[in-house]
Design a protein around this nucleic acid. Structure first.
Lengths: 227, 227
DNA sequence: CGGCATCCTCTTTGATACTG
DNA sequence: CAGTATCAAAGAGGATGCCG
């Protein structure tokens, strides 16, 4: 991308990460951690392979991504974010937060991959402390299930099947998020089509306390006037 | 811009504001408030006029910008952000914060316009409460002077000459910012070339208290390894 | 002048094919 | 698996012209 040539940190940031696809590559690496080239390709449907290669080279040159050889058993090249790259989390979250009202209540036409949803889930649940014994939820909302586990060390969110989940949630990502944020009740989201199997108590353990829920600032997935 | 067609709020946000120049247009409107077309053109050196028109139309369609006729004395069309557009402030600040280490210590080759600097100044000073009588500083660091005033109602930052400033600071934006953030002392920035005229006490009134200064998280304008 | 629209050239992107 | 090569289509940049 041609530089804006402005003495302005916003312009400088856009000089580096303002190109098409670039921030989505960062999202992939934030969500998945270490990635192979083909992982990135699958997580970025529609990207041309030459563009992915070119963007990765550019990000590496700017100290945002590192490329390395994985040890012998796998013996492939892997990409990951540098600390400087991880600092882009604030940017990705700010943009993602702003874009929420643009999401329709359910995927329609768009591709949807579960690991995209894992990132905001991790953000929402990551700082929550869950009382009681270790608990596991499985969320089935996209191409792959998501496993949410609580233990003494905190809440973790992973893409993949849970081994012996205490409860399973099946439905749209919007409903799952509304439930976990506390903006809707268990009965509320069930009435809207979320299927809940297993222990309701296990789910309730993950929900915010009522005073924390009231801190939710705006409607999460709003009706966008332009859709 | 072609849509990414992903059910992901980051991708949706980039569908709307990911185009080249778009976030810089938002920066202009955040910094200046109401703008005429030619104000925007001057604040975005290098933009093609058809692109500016196209982006403004796009932003208006998406409810980020409103176009209106100014009342008779001026009788021109003006652009401003909608509330939804103002919410992009978090995005602009996150990107601007991330981009800070990419700024060299002084403009060299890049265009520099004072009102770009007024935005982060406002962010830094806006929440500060200044004790004592109303005070005015003038900062001369770019094409236009910046006036910083403190009064009972808070701190305000405007582009333009101060009427009777208590002190005048002349030098690079980095030095001014380091002083106001408290990461450098008055004597420190003077040693690096910042020229200070008038009442030092007036300036000291704007500086953070020492405990607040220690909260500054990282070097502000770092030496970028790639420059 | 202020606010664009048009035209043309050049660069970037997208789609596909191919390679160590 | 991890890219490079090629080429058509879309977008950006620059100059100019038009209209109130």
């Amino acid at each position: 991308m041609r530089s804006y040539e402005q003495y302005c940190s916003l312009a400088k940031a856009l000089d580096v990460v303002g190109d098409r696809w670039t921030l989505l590559i960062v999202r992939e690496l934030l969500s998945r951690g270490t990635c192979r080239y083909t992982d990135l390709q699958r997580g970025l449907p529609g990207i041309a392979t030459n563009l992915l290669a070119e963007r990765l080279r550019h990000l590496e040159e700017h100290g945002i991504v590192t490329k390395s050889k994985a040890p012998p058993p796998v013996a492939t090249t892997v990409f990951r974010l540098t600390p400087r790259g991880e600092e882009l989390q604030s940017v990705v979250f700010a943009l993602g937060r702003w874009g929420l009202p643009l999401l329709p209540r359910q995927p329609s036409g768009e591709v949807f991959q579960s690991h995209w949803f894992a990132l905001p889930l991790r953000r929402v649940l990551g700082e929550r402390t869950i009382a009681g014994p270790p608990t596991t939820l499985e969320v089935r909302t996209g191409d792959e299930p998501i496993t949410i586990t609580s233990s003494a060390s905190g809440v973790e969110v992973h893409v993949g099947e849970a081994h012996a989940p205490d409860a399973v949630l099946t439905g749209t990502p919007a409903l799952v998020m509304e439930l976990l944020l506390g903006v809707s009740t268990l009965d509320g989201v069930r009435a809207q089509g979320l299927v809940i199997e297993g222990s309701e108590d296990a789910i309730v353990g993950f929900l915010p306390t009522s005073d924390a829920a009231s801190a939710a600032p705006r409607p999460l997935v709003a009706t966008d006037p332009r859709r």
